[in-house]
Design a protein around this nucleic acid. Structure first.
Lengths: 114, 114
DNA sequence: CAGTATCCAAAAGGATACTG
DNA sequence: CAGTATCCTTTTGGATACTG
């Protein structure tokens, strides 16, 4: 399922297009929630963990690392005691946050009980 | 990970909110692609399979059934030989298609090679 | 044609305990 | 505080063969 290295016309429907991987990263519950939680500025690990109700530290850590690898957010550790680490969206991440926010809003507006 | 039955304020960040499940359904590569492939009208199973490059019949079938269960699309079999089955977005599905299309477009515009 | 059945590999997710 | 380590279960995905 991974992508090729070259691809002239970007098409998420093409199996070998690199953008498939990006779609796979963003079209994910925890990624969508994490990016949304960073829309209003930098947040710490514990803050994100509290906001993304039900996420385990392992899964949150994995999610944030993948997003960082793809350039959607930055991770900044501060040399303090106790340690403080802040996550913040990059310009790329802020761009992705727009359609994801629309998706979250649509879901909240259209979900039915049960 | 499943949702509760009652929830006054819809919040995708709340673990027990039903909309979590809807987000989980839509925030998925194959769901996002399938819904997009139906934007321009009804399509047959084989057409969808061809468009969603790399999807196996099993996974496509599962994806479509989940979307049908949640009321995002309809499945219509025609009593012909050879059999023909058409999938079509519901009003709800057409609503969901909007933010998903934005997401796909953003991904295609912002994915980098390799 | 439109799937289902089967088998299997890999990834995601979850609980909990532990560490710098 | 901010994770990692470990163990385990579930889900997802993929290949292929088969059926109404």
């Amino acid at each position: 399922m991974s992508s090729a290295d070259t691809c002239a016309t970007r098409d998420v429907y093409a199996a070998m297009c690199p953008c498939r991987d990006l779609l796979d990263l963003l079209a994910n519950k925890w990624s969508a929630l994490a990016i949304g939680a960073l829309e209003d500025g930098p947040r710490r690990f514990g803050q994100l963990r509290a906001r993304l109700e039900g996420v385990s530290p392992k899964v949150l850590s994995q999610t944030l690392r993948r997003l960082e690898e793809q350039g959607l957010l930055t991770r900044t550790p501060y040399p303090e005691v106790p340690p403080r680490v802040e996550y913040e969206l990059t310009d790329l991440g802020r761009g992705a946050a727009v359609p994801l926010a629309d998706l979250r809003l649509w879901v909240e507006a259209n979900a039915l009980p049960g």
